[in-house]
Every structure is written in structure tokens, then in C-alpha cells.
């Protein structure tokens, strides 16, 4: 599905927002949609999409979400995963992606 969307719209017109419940899982997804599937389990094995990837709990994304919706669906999970740690973990993949483009 993600591969198809990138082929249709181009990676430069898309960003990926993920919601995995742990940092390790977030990093795995981030690696998959930037450099390719490290586990060679699916269609993104060996395919580098270079998508910019963010987690929904990262401060930059959270700022865009209405407070009532945030409380209803996300506030609890923000106690489970540290948003700052998430930002640091995923910034690596966004940085790799921008290095690749330049």
C-alpha cells in the first residue's frame, strides 16, 4: 500500500505518520519506509522509499492535533512512550533521508 502511494504521488509529496506503541517498533517502521525492510518480510525488502517519517506523539505532530482529540486518543500513550526520545530516535532516519537527497 505505502509503495503504491509513493509510486502514485512521489515521496516528496508524502509524509508517513506512525503510531507504534514502542520506540523499537517505531524505529523498525521508520527504517522500512526510508531505507527498506530490514527483515526482508514484505514488499519493501530492498526498496528505499525515502519517506519522511514522524510518530504521532512527537511534539511537532502533537501541536497540530486538537486538544480534545489528543486527550481522548493519545494522552495515555504519551505516558507510555517518551515523546522526546521518540523524536531523537526518528530524527536519525529523517536525517539519513535528507543526506541521501543532497
Amino acid at each position: 500500500m505505502v509503495k503504491k502511494l509513493v509510486e502514485e504521488h512521489g515521496a516528496e509529496n508524502l509524509m508517513m505518520i506512525i503510531g507504534t506503541p514502542d520506540i523499537e517498533g517505531a524505529e523498525l517502521v521508520a527504517e522500512t519506509v526510508t531505507e527498506g525492510d530490514p527483515s526482508y518480510a514484505g514488499p519493501l525488502a530492498g526498496v528505499s522509499l525515502g519517506l519522511p517519517v514522524y510518530h504521532i506523539l512527537e511534539p511537532a505532530i502533537r501541536a497540530e492535533i486538537p486538544e480534545d482529540l489528543y486527550k481522548e486518543h493519545l494522552a495515555m500513550m504519551a505516558m507510555v512512550i517518551d515523546p522526546q526520545e521518540l523524536e531523537t530516535a526518528l530524527a536519525k532516519y529523517r536525517k539519513k533521508k535528507s543526506l541521501k537527497k543532497s
Binding site: 506503541p21 517498533g25 527504517e31 527483515s39 505516558m79 507510555v80
Partner: peptide, 20 residues
């Protein structure tokens, strides 16, 4: 394999619910 500590994440979620 990058699949996280599944029980720990679950326990954090239940604890967070108790805190909320």
C-alpha cells in the same frame, strides 16, 4: 529484532491508564 519489550509496553499502558 526491533519488536520491543511487549509485556513492559502493556504494563506501562495499564499503569498510564491508572494514572489518567
Amino acid at each position: 529484532m526491533g519488536s520491543g519489550n511487549v509485556p513492559l509496553t502493556n504494563y506501562k499502558t495499564i499503569a498510564a491508564m491508572a494514572a489518567m
